[in-house]
Design a protein around this nucleic acid. Structure first.
Lengths: 178, 178
DNA sequence: CGGCGATGCGTACACTCGTACACATGGGAT
DNA sequence: ATCCCATGTGTACGAGTGTACGCATCGCCG
């Protein structure tokens, strides 16, 4: 392990943390497990991230960026004539079609804010940013409700182990969007 | 600690587990912390609940029963002429008015199913039971969507540290209920 | 009445964890 | 060229954890 002066080490530690959470859950996240996954010594993780909360903040922020990019790239989302509810339902379909793993991972990070106040500003960034994106197509209140319903639908799928029903999602999102 | 042959010991351990989760989160739940809270020796908790998952299942089930009873007692929910959306929004308002602590605790148990397959059947029981309750007022698909939106609204409040807006909730629930 | 199984109790072991600390190294400011 | 300090590395310690196991104690059933 002779790899000194690694300018991307911090980033690699964050990536490793995300992989660890994906594989073992937040409960399996420790300085040691991250160090092993990132192939760096223990002292290196504690040096860059004094606490696990700090590491979780960085991981959640990166996870948010990933999904935000997906939404930003959706052209139909910007087209004022497109069916907003259908487009959102389709996005969720694509989100789930890649296997549950990714959704579980990102939701676990997101939901961790429930008990970790340090994560709440990051979670708020996420909803605010998405709401702003959706506000180009509807009023802000409706945008927030669309996000809430999408969260709720995802939760039902993930928590109960059920299947995602895109037609159903489109119908209910449509009732909110009007 | 000379308290042998305690027929309610199992129940008291479950209550203690709920208190521990409320105070320290699931991360702070251990056989030892529960034993201390319930004032029983370590061996007693491991005897009644071989794993922490078993204990969580029992705790989640009890937590579900509490909330289900609240909904069952709501007469307006059974009155076909009452405003369903308004009634549900009011229930959530009452849910939050008692401080965030209870909501945080119950949601933490509920959301734990994301990473613990053993809890998923219990989470499914909860949504199925509530959906059935609501199905007396609307069709099943709408009932599930109402639950999803309520979950999403609660999440936004709890995760971002925001305030619950009952009028907003009523408006959006109304759009779904039609 | 006798014993057997369910329940309760205490302790010990091996393991992982966060944290702290001393030392090594070399990039960049001066 | 020199020196400071951010960064990297290895190790040790104490605390907490799940688990296992032996023994104690009574309720109940035959």
């Amino acid at each position: 392990m002779v790899r000194r002066y690694d300018p991307e080490r911090r980033d690699r530690i964050i990536d490793a943390a995300i992989r660890v959470v994906g594989a073992k859950g937040i409960a399996g996240l420790s300085h040691r497990s991250v160090a092993a996954e990132a192939d760096v010594p223990l002292g290196s993780t504690t040096y860059h991230f004094a606490s696990l909360d700090e590491l979780l903040i960085a991981a959640l922020r990166r996870s948010n960026e990933n999904f935000a990019e997906v939404m930003r790239e959706s052209e139909a989302l910007a087209d004022p004539d497109a069916d907003l509810a259908g487009e959102l339902a389709g996005l969720l379909g694509a989100y789930f079609s890649g296997g549950r793993g990714r959704a579980e991972l990102e939701y676990e990070l997101y939901l961790a804010a429930l008990r970790r106040p340090a994560l709440r500003p990051v979670a708020a960034e996420w909803t605010d940013g998405t709401a702003e994106l959706l506000s180009r197509r509807t009023d802000p209140a409706t945008a927030r409700a669309l996000i809430a319903l999408m969260d709720g639908i995802c939760l039902q799928v993930l928590l109960t182990g059920g299947e995602y029903d895109e037609a159903y999602a489109r119908e209910m999102l449509g009732r909110i969007a009007g």
